[in-house]
């Protein structure tokens, strides 16, 4: 509960901060708090990923981007009637999302669909079918191998996209000429 409180406070500060550097550091803090929250919920693997990717890599990449652009946010245009529409859209989406959670089973309900579908089978059969102690790994790598394959394909494609957009490899002579002219 304390962690959740800190989370909300950090999120508010991130929105409030005009200095992007402050925002990025606070985002890192936010990720670390989420990782702590996952730890409390016994999701060690997810906490590990969140701490490494969210608090570590994302922060570094954000800082790298800030080094390329201005460190301060541009001042927001003065209050006008046009701001009413975004407010309404956000408000409606928020109300819809809250409405959506009303149907969800209570947290920790043993009869919730997620606990009675394939999860028990994974937990019971993993030791005899896969034979490794960490069930998270056996689900990720074996039962859900397709998902993991898709996941690393996404990462591969993302890196490829960044390389082609702003990389300066020898394979892209056209881009090089552009930067030379500029």
């Amino acid at each position: 509960m304390t962690l959740l409180g800190f989370l909300v406070a950090t999120a508010l500060f991130v929105v409030q901060a005009r200095n992007l550097f402050v925002s990025v550091i606070l985002m890192g803090l936010f990720s670390l708090l989420v990782a702590g929250l996952f730890m409390v919920l016994d999701a060690v693997d997810v906490a590990f990923t969140e701490a490494a990717v969210g608090a570590g890599i994302s922060t570094v990449l954000f800082l790298g981007t800030i080094a390329l652009v201005a460190p301060k946010e541009r001042p927001v245009a003065p209050r006008s009637r046009r701001q009413l529409l975004p407010f309404l859209v956000v408000g409606a989406t928020f109300a819809l999302l809250i409405f959506g959670t009303l149907d969800m089973p209570l947290y920790g309900d043993p009869n919730a669909p997620i606990h009675v579908y394939v999860a028990p089978r994974y937990l019971e059969q993993s030791a005899t079918e896969i034979g490794i102690p960490n069930v998270v790994t056996s689900v990720l790598a074996s039962y859900r191998g397709y998902d993991t394959l898709g996941e690393i394909t996404v990462i591969f494609t993302a890196a490829l996209g960044v390389m082609m957009l702003i990389g300066r490899g020898r394979k892209f002579p056209r881009r090089r000429r552009e930067t030379d002219e500029a």
Partner: peptide
Amino acid sequence: GEFGPGGGFQAGVIFGV
């Protein structure tokens, strides 16, 4: 990764870091 928390993804990130 098969015995404790972690696996290829986390290891890759740490190696990259």
